[in-house]
Nucleic acid binder design. Structure first.
Lengths: 96, 96
DNA sequence: CGGAATCCATTTAGATACTG
DNA sequence: CAGTATCTAAATGGATTCCG
């Protein structure tokens, strides 16, 4: 979920399904679809279907989604900045 | 997890196990213990055992935990502020 | 291309009983 | 008081197959 929102958030512009998928290595088609659907249902993501052949589907954050993305990005950055501290705490805890 | 950190964060001072438990209605004893243990392992929570009888155990956020709590509190506030928007989006989506 | 549907292994969480 | 241990039910996630 966070990864999906971060992917759409960083990119900014609408992204096709395959494009989102490529940017989240290891995600299964089922999970990505499921996540995008629930984000769409919650009003975080807008899904646009263009009925050409083959069909084209674009995803992008809504305003609501962008406001949440701003917070998620902060948490993501916190995680990067404090990864070492957490690793150290774990190593210390596990040694006991 | 978030609820546990919020409970400890809002309170500020050390809290006893039973006190934390009372502030998170519906949490099972197993889940609370499990959550507190993993938070302790990650360096977010400090656990202090006072060997009186009956034993006294206090939990409180570490500095690292407090820095994460600040972000979690923002997300919690965002959720409160945007609950209506999300509810509306869901109602609209589900009507289709 | 962008999925839906199904099956199955794994994970997770709740209930319950017991303990230093 | 503050847990641990165990069992089971439910939710979750991956792999696979098929479709407009």
């Amino acid at each position: 979920m966070s990864l999906t929102m971060c992917t759409l958030g960083i990119h900014g512009a609408p992204m096709r399904y395959s494009e989102v998928s490529r940017n989240i290595p290891g995600v299964s088609q089922k999970m990505l679809t499921q996540t995008l659907r629930s984000l769409e249902r919650d009003g975080m993501v807008r899904r646009t279907v263009t009925p050409v052949s083959p069909v084209r589907v674009d995803y992008e954050l809504t305003d609501l989604g962008r406001s949440l993305y701003a917070l998620i990005a902060q948490v993501r950055d916190w995680a990067h900045e404090n990864a070492d501290a957490v690793d150290h705490a774990r190593a210390t805890y596990d040694k006991l």
